[in-house]
Amino acid sequence: MARVDITGGCLCGAIRYSAITARDIVTLCHCTECRRFTGHHWAAVRVLERDLQISGSAKLAWYAHSETARRGFCADCGSSLIFRFNDADFLGIAAGSIDTPTGLTAGQHIFCNEKGDYYEIADGVPQSESW
């Protein structure tokens, strides 16, 4: 699995980052929480915390939606940016926030049993009911 250099940031530009991804695939999560957070469904690439540099982190707000994980977003523009487990050394960076070309490919749909009822998953990418 290839590692990819990426740069990106939020809509307003207050938060910018550079990173080397842990792999070259994007995970697409259809769980209820991700769908509420993003407005459709989540898409993220895994990055080890030590491989991520963030500028403007004072604008990075966090919401702990469970005891085990939290989500990061820009406090100024509301861009949905990060998902991370509290005790993990990696996090998920929103694929839509990455400057193009990303060098990444959708690799897995997860939590498809919670997907919204107004769309179909038709891209041929493997699906799983939960993880």
Partner: peptide, 27 residues
């Protein structure tokens, strides 16, 4: 664009001068 300051959910796309607002389906 409307969002929640507590949880960051991306909720609304407000066409300011129009009579409609787009609401995120995931909500």
């Amino acid at each position: 664009r409307g969002f929640c300051a507590t949880c960051g959910a991306s909720l609304f796309f407000d066409a300011i001068y129009r009579d409609w607002v787009a609401v995120s389906m995931g909500a």
